[in-house]
Write a protein that binds this DNA or RNA. Structure first.
Lengths: 163, 163
DNA sequence: AATGTAATGTTATAATATAACAAATTTATC
DNA sequence: GATAAATTTGTTATATTATAACATTACATT
């Protein structure tokens, strides 16, 4: 029962987060090299902090952590890094939470749909062709040209339902 | 070419906004009567201001207008009214804009998908069964229980494409 | 090294939203 | 109708999220 459209699933107990994080940073380095942009230490650290878990992270929480580490001192520092990472497709912003998560497939151009668990806070990312298609088809039938989509489903993940 | 799933279409030049607004207020009165809640003058006025156009309205713009009219003086006034109207399903919040629009079908329980024109700013509301179904089915297949959905499509409406 | 560009620092402020408590208004009960 | 209870609104203060504007530093190119 493979499910290609899930870019970032909800995590099991045995999720090997260290390697998961390393892979994310690896991909970020690759992405930036091929784009000819600079993944500076600051930007890299912000990405690393966002990837600290699979929870959405708030800008000012990042700022607090950076301040503790004596790097990045004020809001613009963080927001500029976030803007950079968003533009490079390395992270996503969740509009319904004003928070940020790492992108599950940074090397692949895609749009996303997010599942947000209201109990544990974890976020899963998918890019489902059926969802994309039905939305595109509908928009098109109304003469609407789609430029971007915000799709965030709030609810309860399997683990939390199981209790 | 009826399209039942469109609760609030993009508007033509000949859109009769006065009657549109009156209908919205009428429905709000009905809704509140049947729910046994109070559509106070303040709440009614906020709803009216939101229905002033089919553009999303910002909380602090509402506040400015209320101040001009010497009713409602501080942010909590506005936010409380907005919370009330949201709870009653008389308005919706657009998460990607931090702004509010009137609900196209307040008397009918529904979820919504929004089309937001980046050129003219107008918003259309739909509740399309195909979209709902594909999202629900997908969530379900992942063991996810849906509680709420945020679906906002940004792009260009037909009028703006035509120029 | 000199120069231009990109990135970061710094200060200030804008924009969005809520907490906490007081006063007024409405509703329910006597 | 007077009183008590509940709801709504007022008021002050503050929290949270984000950007503007300009200075400084780091890096890249010549």
């Amino acid at each position: 029962m493979a499910n290609d459209s899930v870019l970032m699933p909800f995590k099991d107990r045995d999720h090997a987060h260290q390697s998961c994080l390393e892979k994310a940073l690896d991909q970020a380095v690759k992405n930036c090299e091929s784009s000819g942009v600079r993944l500076t230490p600051l930007r890299r650290r912000v990405l690393e902090l966002i990837w600290g878990s699979h929870m959405p992270v708030k800008a000012y929480d990042l700022l607090d952590q950076l301040r503790d580490e004596k790097i990045g001192s004020a809001p613009p520092t963080v927001y500029r890094s976030l803007d950079f990472l968003l533009e490079e497709g390395l992270i996503h912003k969740l509009q319904s939470l004003n928070a940020y998560v790492g992108c599950g497939e940074p090397l692949k151009h895609h749009t996303s749909q997010f599942l947000i668990c209201r109990d544990c806070g974890e976020v899963a990312e998918m890019d489902d062709p059926d969802i994309q298609q039905v939305l595109s088809r509908k928009a098109e039938s109304l003469g609407f040209q789609v430029l971007d989509k915000t799709i965030e489903i709030q609810g309860l993940c399997e683990k939390c339902i199981a209790g």
